[in-house]
Amino acid sequence: MRGGKCVSNLVAGAAIILAIVGATVCLENLSLTQVEKQKLEQLKQAISSINFPIHRMKEELNLVRYLRARRWDVPGAKDMLLQTVKWWKDNNMDEIHTEDWSSVAKEYPINTDGVDRNGQPVFVFSIGDWDLRRAALQGKLDLAIRHFIKGFDEVHVKSIEYNKSGKSNGTQWNFISNLDKLSRQQHLCIPCLRFYTGIMLMFESHYPGSTEKIFVINAPSIFSVILTLVQPILSPETYKALQILGTNKEQWGPILFSHIAKDQLPESVGGSRT
């Protein structure tokens, strides 16, 4: 089973359990072979009659990501795009950034202000700030998931805008999940588990190939519950981006800060940005 070794190592102790790429620059590969270029042109023709709700869905970079997610199978990529169009409309994604999130943002905080050393945006999420059990009991879990989706889309849009304006050398974004204070009671209750599967299904289905690196820091042994739950959902590309780090800041700090400067990160993950 994919990720099985990761789970057993993490249960054995809080340590670095996935291979660490380190400080090497690993921007998205945008080069295509001749065959891949032909597949791209075929997909363009196949989707020419689709009424996309937003322009970025039909841009070449997005089409390439969907093709890669479906191993260059054009009908599969088209079907995946159609599912994203349906999801976008069904979830009123056109309105998500103009909704009133003032009260929700205090209860379920996220940070999308920083950038990595290549100028790519960073999404920071600290699980200790979110009481998922209370959200589930109060019937707010779907709202919490929607707020999380808003954050994903926000950094996704930033990654496109930063690249087009020359602010970024890359085309992707980064995700940091801080698991400090991860609690069985507040974060691993049975109703809570839908949060993790919901956001990962959304990510893999509608934002394929969009992250350069995913850092999971302060990962305790009970993180294996979440990893086991979501591992069937994760694509090989997501596994490649994933770096799961233990609870020792002296170990995860140099790895994280080599990729993202401290002044671009909030204090919750060892940064100095306020």
Rank of each mutant, 00 (worst) to 15 (best):
V74L: 01
I110M: 07
R194W: 06
A23W: 14
P236G: 15
D131Y: 07
V157H: 13
P254Y: 00
L201Q: 12
G253N: 02
M80A: 08
P208E: 00
L193W: 12
N111E: 11
A14Y: 06
E250Y: 04
L242K: 03
D180K: 14
R184D: 10
T84Y: 06
T228H: 15
G151K: 01
S31F: 05
N51L: 04
V225C: 14
V115C: 11
L63G: 00
L43Y: 01
L27M: 13
A77W: 03
W72S: 11
P208M: 00
D142H: 06
K213R: 14
P109Y: 06
D131E: 10
F195P: 00
H147Y: 11
T274V: 12
Y196A: 02
D113W: 12
W173Y: 13
M93E: 09
S183Y: 07
P236E: 15
L242W: 03
F152L: 06
I226M: 12
H156I: 04
F123D: 02
E60C: 03
E28S: 09
R184A: 13
Y207L: 13
G119F: 05
G139P: 01
K262V: 03
G246P: 02
R70A: 00
V104Y: 08
I176D: 04
K213P: 04
P236R: 15
G13N: 10
A15V: 14
L43V: 02
T238Q: 12
L143T: 10
I110R: 04
R65N: 03
Q186N: 12
A12Y: 14
V124N: 12
S235F: 12
E59S: 11
Q186A: 11
V124S: 13
F195E: 00
R133I: 10
G170T: 01
G166V: 07
S235A: 15
S48V: 09
F148K: 01
C6I: 15
A241Y: 07
V11C: 11
D113S: 13
S235C: 13
F203W: 09
S235V: 13
I17M: 07
H97A: 10
E250L: 09
L256S: 00
I127H: 04
L40V: 05
W130E: 03
W88K: 06
L227R: 11
Y66G: 01
Q186Y: 10
S168E: 00
P109S: 12
A19F: 14
E107Y: 08
I176C: 07
L132C: 08
M1G: 13
N9Y: 12
F195C: 01
E107F: 08
D73W: 12
C189S: 15
Q38G: 14
L182T: 04
F223P: 09
L61F: 02
D73C: 15
S205F: 00
A69T: 01
S268Y: 04
H147K: 04
E250M: 03
S8A: 08
K167G: 07
K78Y: 10
T84V: 05
S168N: 00
I255N: 03
P254T: 02
W252V: 01
H97T: 09
